[in-house]
Design a protein around this nucleic acid. Structure first.
Lengths: 241, 241
DNA sequence: CTATGTGAACACTTTCACAGCA
DNA sequence: TGCTGTGAAAGTGTTCACATAG
């Protein structure tokens, strides 16, 4: 349908397939934990075991970023982390706005994996009088009607919808209207947004249903490796949209 | 490594591929919403458009459950919902325990897509004195040390880890010890559990990193269809550990 | 001798295109 | 005529197996 079907530009390095992209953040997390526990060097075998995947897959994934391993030794954890960051584009400024500051929104704001991974909470929005004006973490909650104003000063790249289902579409529309091009939807509602807007879902009931399936068909699985993952500090989410 | 590599048993119907399994809950949600808004019948084209996938994919996915469509008309929404439920195994009793009743745990308990999809909150656990004994939704929070006791009466199938990262592994070990075979981890920590235990991650930072990648490489995408989804009422999660 | 990096084989998914049924 | 259901083709992703480097 559309976009410029031209050569897929890669800032540096090769083109990274979808399947690899969703695994990189996991390797990232594993590496951080290993590094924190004192390991300087990691083998594809170790990474694979912790990520519950095949070692060849780890090597192939990492080789897409460049040849950063040392034969006979493994990978330098710290260096590999920086390379994955670069590949994922998290070594840039990604202002994120969160709309809906209920339990979920608060959990998101305070979640460890948020600021720690280079994402910046540009603003929090809600509409409830008791919530607007409240300080959550280091940020004061603003009324959703201020969204346009904020967007002019500090255009948010990513919008997180953490409202009740009933408000989700309206909020998504507002985010799109101010130029947000990636939406992460935690509300259990199907959203309709323009094709160019990247939309991902994070939904407890969906994840539970997938688990239900595998629990029902435990025998189908070979090696315990299932789908893989999607994640947002909360729960896996589908790319509906 | 292991399991009985025998014939993949399918209660009824054919074997459902992984890729399809993660889409079924989304079709499910779309169908519920369409049904609620008065549609009795749905075409693969409509479903595809709302799910942001190709119509042929929808038809192939649904054909794996059986031939439930009517040529020239489409699918009966209500009937299709029941068939998807059956395929996913959600037409059974799935007791779920949630450990960690902070903002995230509360958001999960109260999330719409929870009870509405046949999952039953068997128990809530925490260790903080101020939280244990509190009533959250219809359930009273118990101390984690009661887990073993609960498991003898009402063995939970699925355990949800919604604790801080520092407690996650310990909680996972406790869940495994009482026989839980599927764990949904919302804590930003890599978990190590036996191979037979199904483990999925739901993690905000991971999801944001995936979005960061696509935001950086917007031009790579053709048609706006990206990964797809994973979900848990909260956010997408990877299948790590 | 260990562990990476990768061509080539294999497996799984998606998409096409159209036959067949309502 | 309209839309499903599905072989067959095309496209992705995974795993093997081994040459290669440290």
């Amino acid at each position: 349908m559309g976009l410029d079907d031209a050569e897929r530009s890669e800032p540096r390095g090769r083109r990274i397939p979808e399947a690899t992209v969703v695994r990189l953040p996991i390797y990232q997390r594993i590496l951080s934990e290993l590094l924190r526990s004192g390991a300087a060097t990691v083998s594809s075998e170790q990474l694979a075991s912790l990520a519950r995947v095949n070692a060849a897959k780890v090597r192939k994934d990492l080789s897409l970023l460049g040849s950063f391993g040392t034969r006979g030794t493994g990978y330098d954890a710290a260096f590999l982390i920086s390379q994955i960051d670069r590949a994922l584009g998290v070594d840039r400024d990604w202002p994120v706005v969160i709309v809906g500051i209920g339990n979920l929104g608060r959990a998101l704001v305070n979640s460890e994996g948020f600021s720690s991974r280079g994402f910046r909470v540009a603003a929090l929005f809600d509409v409830a009088p008791g919530v607007v004006g409240e300080k959550v973490g280091p940020v004061t909650v603003r009324h959703l009607s201020d969204l346009g104003e904020l967007a002019q000063i500090d255009r948010p790249a990513i919008g997180v919808v953490a409202t009740p289902a009933s408000a989700a579409q309206e909020v998504a529309d507002a985010l799109v209207a101010v130029g947000v091009t990636s939406i992460l939807n935690f509300a259990p509602r199907v959203l309709v947004v323009p094709t160019e807007v990247l939309l991902r879902y994070v939904d407890l009931s969906i994840e539970l249903q997938v688990m239900s399936f595998y629990q029902s068909r435990r025998a189908d699985e070979v090696e315990g490796e299932v789908p893989f993952m999607r994640s947002v500090g909360l729960s896996p989410s589908p790319d509906i949209g």
